[in-house]
């Protein structure tokens, strides 16, 4: 078994012009997905991030705002899961509800030395 992090980028509902009902429906899918992973016993953890943040960049340590909510690069949060392979992790990520809004899931294996 290996651990993978699914990092979620983009797909701001406000920017996509969704109605409250449409948002609610998507949220329902997110919950269902979380429940499905919990039931399968593969969900290890996760956090959601608020959209406001800062970056410190380069030798000059320049402080800038993190990408705006409209950006496809804004990280919304992550889940960590425990499955046997990258293929399996990618299969799990298929249930991410917001691909159609241009959302991105980046799947990365968590490094361990053993």
């Amino acid at each position: 078994m290996k651990e993978y992090m699914m990092v979620f980028l983009g797909a701001d509902y406000g920017n996509a012009g969704l109605s409250p009902e449409q948002m609610q429906e998507r949220m329902g899918k997110w919950f269902a997905w979380g429940d499905k992973m919990t039931k399968a016993g593969i969900l290890k953890g996760g956090e959601a991030l608020t959209p406001v943040g800062k970056r410190i960049v380069g030798a000059k340590r320049l402080v800038t705002d993190s990408p705006s909510a409209e950006s496809k690069e804004l990280i919304g949060g992550y889940y960590t899961i425990k499955v046997e392979s990258m293929d399996k992790a990618l299969e799990v990520a298929q249930d991410y509800p917001d691909f159609d809004l241009g959302g991105t899931v980046e799947v990365r294996e968590i490094m361990v030395f053993s």
């Binding site: 701001d12 949220m27 899918k29 997110w30 956090e47 959209p51 909510a69 917001d98 959302g103």
Partner: peptide, 15 residues
């Protein structure tokens, strides 16, 4: 917090 922004990821906090 920026009012307009809402992403499905907030469900992770409530899951």
């Amino acid at each position: 917090v920026e009012q307009k922004y809402l992403s499905g990821t907030s469900t992770i906090a409530i899951q």
